[in-house]
């Protein structure tokens, strides 16, 4: 029996000289394979910098010998998704607008795609949550009040051509007269008609002035806003009797509106968005809670 334990004894290796509470630290040698693994990592590292883009040069860097290119990988990934989505986009364009919401697969695709489009192109004015900016003329798309119509076709048309822009001949257009600036009504008449609007929208008002305002309203405003002030979607004339105001419903705001008129503009998205994107974002907006 020539056996001896392979573990080194303290006498064989000595100590490092470090002592804690009488405990000495043996000076065991490192296993040689650790050294080999260090060399292996060095060789790996050199190979890696040859295979992949690595060393900086005056302009650019070494490109590596295996042609690795993450930009190309990203482009390929994007193309892969585009190809995968192509049949869905084609189906979306081919579908009847009114049938999209009823088709679970189409609707799911349109809502998620439309959400991305909305956050890229629409959120600047309408807000990321689509709540608009109250009092500034950016409409809230979550409520059930629509200037130009709230069904999917009407929303699609509004997005496709925009409102009152000068670039799209099919843009929705209407113009409220500047009653004050153009002296169509004098200050007292404006004050009276404002009291009438306050009355029909259920707000605190001066009853005597409102009565006078009613006549002025039917002479000057009813053509667009309707005899009862319920608005007219064909002209984008807002309903004046509900709780929703694009620029605000308070007395002084209404006075400003009647005096100077408002001229909100929305760009035309035809050409900037593809038809499948227009339909996606229309489906998304229609599904925000106010769609008709």
């Amino acid at each position: 029996m020539c056996a001896k334990s392979v573990k080194k004894k303290p006498d064989d290796v000595g100590t490092t000289g470090h002592t804690w509470d009488g405990i000495q630290e043996l000076n065991n040698p490192m296993p040689r394979w650790w050294l080999w693994s260090l060399y292996a990592t060095i060789i790996w590292g050199i190979g890696y910098t040859i295979a992949y883009p690595a060393w900086p040069l005056l302009t650019g860097s070494t490109q590596g010998v295996i042609g690795a290119d993450e930009r190309a990988e990203v482009a390929a990934e994007i193309k892969r998704f585009d190809d995968a989505n192509a049949p869905m986009k084609a189906a979306l364009v081919a579908a009847d607008l009114g049938a999209i919401a009823g088709d679970e697969a189409l609707r799911t695709y349109a809502v998620s795609s439309g959400s991305a489009v909305f956050k890229t192109f629409c959120a600047q004015c309408h807000g990321a949550g689509a709540a608009g900016v109250e009092g500034k003329g950016y409409p809230n798309l979550l409520d059930n009040d629509w200037l130009w119509g709230g069904d999917i076709e009407a929303i699609h048309t509004t997005i496709s051509h925009g409102i009152r822009n000068t670039t799209d001949p099919d843009a929705r257009y209407s113009e409220m007269p500047k009653f004050g600036v153009d002296e169509l009504l004098d200050k007292d008449q404006i004050g009276a008609v404002v009291e009438y609007v306050l009355q029909i929208s259920g707000q605190e008002h001066d009853a005597a002035l409102a009565t006078a305002g009613a006549t002025i309203f039917s002479d000057n405003c009813a053509a667009c806003h309707g005899p009862a002030g319920l608005g007219d979607r064909a002209q984008g004339a807002p309903n004046l009797t509900d709780a929703i105001w694009l620029y605000g419903g308070a007395r002084d705001t209404l006075t400003t509106t009647v005096t100077y008129a408002r001229f909100g503009v929305m760009p035309s998205w035809t050409g900037r968005l593809s038809e499948d994107e227009l339909r996606s974002v229309a489906t998304y907006v229609h599904g925000l809670g106010g769609g008709e």
């Binding site: 990321a128 709540a131 809230n140 979550l142 409520d143 009040d145 259920g202 709780a243 929703i244 809670g289």
Partner: peptide
């Protein structure tokens, strides 16, 4: 975002 939505009849959603 937003906290709530006012509907045309003034109700809160």
């Amino acid at each position: 975002n937003p906290q709530f939505v006012v509907l045309s009849d003034g109700s809160i959603r």
